[in-house]
Design a protein around this nucleic acid. Structure first.
Length: 272
DNA sequence: ACTCGTGTTAGCTG
DNA sequence: TCAGCTAACACGAG
């Protein structure tokens, strides 16, 4: 579920609560989430270190680690991706848990312990966990982020124009391409295209310069709004992404289709 | 029982 | 090699 704004919430949670606490143990036994690492590999690399800084580009995070006693050289970076259903849960020494990155359905499900797919135990008794029902999140050492495009929240209008590029690919598919722009997910893409009144399926080479400009500003506004309101699911058109819904702007029927391989909703009138 | 999904990616095609 | 597409991954929710 997490898109850029939710991942930023998770990053900020780690920055505020998980840094400078000594790592005493690591549960990396879920080899699907930690692939291609083998069990114990992350534990051996992390125990005795502290998390020292946390970064994010798009939906990817990486955490720097300290040296160990006797070897001050920094340790490996710990890469974390929340996937479709991951959240970060940080527990204070006293046991109080705070979470970040999820679709805030509090109390929606019981917290099955096996949904903690990766856990760092701190020496102070607290912990950091990747909580992930669908298990599509990933944790790995020294992640390669070189394939990611510029962060969607930091890209300039000029870069955006260049990155949207040429070709016949649907504009929504291009928005979702993390190697071009990092951080836009399915909901943010639908929201930005709806705000900009652009049909998600039109080829990028059919967009006029003013369309691209409108899309850029709509995307920035959607990111700001999502950050301020708690996530991509708070977008204006998001509640109307279902059968029988009508566009909240003009009352026209909402259309549905698959664009860029993802479930897509658009206004039949203004995004025709 | 059965379909869907706020993400990523290996592998295929032209 | 590149642009673009599809299936697969895993599993809970509706």
């Amino acid at each position: 579920m997490p898109e850029l704004p939710e991942v930023e919430t998770a990053r900020s949670l780690i920055a505020d609560q998980a840094l400078d606490r000594t790592i005493a143990g690591v549960d990396d036994s879920d080899t699907y989430v930690t692939r291609p690492h083998t069990p114990g590999q992350l534990r051996d690399a992390l125990v005795g270190r502290r998390l020292t800084a946390v970064h994010r580009r798009g939906k990817s995070m990486w955490v720097e680690t300290s040296g160990v006693e006797g070897d001050p050289a920094p340790g490996p970076d710990l890469g974390i991706h929340l996937g479709m259903s991951g959240r970060i849960v940080v527990t204070a020494p006293g046991g109080k848990a705070t979470e970040g990155g999820g679709p805030w359905r509090r109390d929606a499900q019981p917290r099955k312990p096996e949904w903690d797919r990766f856990t760092i135990e701190f020496a102070d008794g607290g912990r950091l966990a990747l909580f992930d029902t669908r298990r599509l999140g990933r944790v790995r050492l020294d992640p390669d982020i070189s394939a990611l495009g510029p962060d969607a929240g930091e890209i300039t209008a000029e870069e955006f124009r260049r990155v949207l590029g040429k070709g016949t690919i649907a504009v929504k598919a291009r928005l979702l391409d993390q190697s071009k722009i990092a951080g836009v997910g399915n909901l943010l893409a639908d929201e930005a295209l709806w705000q900009a009144r652009i049909n998600p399926a039109v080829p990028v080479n059919s967009l006029r310069p003013e369309d691209v400009d409108r899309l850029y500003h709509a995307l920035q506004a959607a990111l700001d709004s999502a950050a301020a309101n708690g996530g991509a699911h708070t977008g204006e058109v998001i509640p109307f992404r279902h059968a029988g819904a009508r566009c909240p702007r003009d009352g026209a029927e909402m259309r549905h289709g698959i664009v860029g391989g993802r479930s897509t909703w658009w206004c039949s009138l203004e995004q025709a």
